[in-house]
């Protein structure tokens, strides 16, 4: 649905050139929620603004729904933008208009008839749960309600893509969750492709299907959320992942573990259904080893449980090795932290 190829954006200022985006490529499939995460200054804001040409790319190509964006004339671009909804961190509602009029605004722009506008706006306010606030002004609303208006407004022209620019960053955690739920709901109901940027891993873990990590204007890691979460490759990704789940054993605990005992210490990581298998008791039954559970945690991303367990395998070295081989066959990710003596 969105295809970005070799996108580069260079700002030329008095202080010289600043490379905001450096040859970024990514693909967002139809109907998915794609998250781009990065620290501030990583270039994510520039990236999302390039999709609807609020920022002109210096180089590269952006294709939305089969349409190359970079070569559009102004009037073609306006028509195309009507089909790309966008919501913002600070909502950007018109303070002089009521909630109803704010949602009607994009419809006025695209020249929809009055009766049709009334019908659509009413439905949209129903969808975002603000039917009773139609005649209120934005200043009378809470942050979460303002973002709901923003969402209704972004959906008014039946967009093919929704861009979310830090849509929940100005909201408290409870409101963030309710807005994310609404976005997920819309994504499912309307089969709407969503591209969002954020600096909060929580947002990614709650609703995104795919994620890209951006740093210094480059995509440093990309993939399905579950994969990136369970096997982060880049240190920045690991930092993000650790903001919500602890996949690493704290150093102190690791030291203590390695001091004690003399068995083989193994770290198992598991994703999804494996968590239901009684692998540990199988080890004991079939390989003539004792198993001591040293450390563990389990978490869930969307509907997929995943976790990590550190066990000590006590027994003959041959038996321990066989046990490890067995574990590998179960589709678990195995890391031997200390071999048996």
């Amino acid at each position: 649905m969105i295809q970005i190829r070799d996108l580069t954006k260079i700002y030329r200022g008095a202080a010289g050139e600043v490379v905001a985006l450096d040859s970024v490529s990514l693909r967002v499939r139809k109907g998915e929620i794609y998250g781009i995460i990065g620290f501030s200054g990583a270039g994510k804001s520039t990236l999302i603004r390039c999709v609807n040409m609020l920022e002109r790319p210096t180089e590269g190509s952006i294709i939305v729904n089969g349409q190359e964006m970079t070569t559009l004339y102004e009037s073609q671009l306006r028509t195309m933008r009507q089909k790309i909804g966008m919501i913002f961190q600070h909502f950007n509602l018109l303070s002089s208009r009521t909630v109803f009029e704010n949602v009607a605004f994009p419809l006025e722009i695209s020249g929809v008839a009055k009766a049709e506008i009334n019908k659509k706006v009413t439905n949209l306010l129903e969808l975002v749960g603000l039917a009773d606030k139609a005649q209120s002004y934005p200043s009378q609303l809470s942050g979460g309600q303002k973002q709901r208006v923003g969402i209704a407004r972004a959906l008014a022209n039946d967009p093919i893509v929704l861009l979310c620019d830090e849509a929940t960053s100005a909201l408290d955690p409870a409101t963030t969750s309710s807005i994310l739920e609404l976005l997920k709901d819309i994504n499912r109901k309307l089969d709407l492709t969503i591209l969002m940027i954020t600096h909060e891993m929580k947002v990614i873990s709650e609703i995104c299907d795919s994620v890209a990590v951006i740093e210094g204007g480059k995509i440093i890691e990309e993939g399905l959320v579950i994969d990136v979460f369970t096997q982060p490759k880049h240190s920045t990704t690991r930092r993000f992942v650790q903001t919500i789940i602890n996949t690493d054993v704290p150093d102190k605990i690791r030291e203590r573990l390695l001091e004690k005992g003399q068995g083989q210490i193994i770290r198992l990581s598991f994703i999804g259904d494996n968590t239901a298998e009684p692998v540990v008791s199988s080890l004991v039954k079939h390989f003539d080893v004792d198993v001591n559970i040293l450390y563990g945690n389990i978490d869930q991303i969307q509907d997929t449980p995943f976790g990590m367990l550190i066990i000590e395998c006590i027994g003959a070295k041959a038996n321990c090795d066989k046990a490890v081989a067995y574990l590998r066959k179960q589709g678990l990710r195995i890391e031997v932290l200390r071999s048996a003596e």
Partner: peptide, 29 residues
């Protein structure tokens, strides 16, 4: 007038004239 509002209008595909008449002037009224 908050630039964010202008940016939002651009993102909706508003023309220069629409932004002047429907955004800048009413917001600054």
């Amino acid at each position: 007038v908050n630039w964010g509002v202008v940016e939002a209008s651009l993102a909706m595909g508003a023309s220069t004239w629409q932004i002047i008449r429907k955004v800048l002037l009413p917001e600054a009224m």
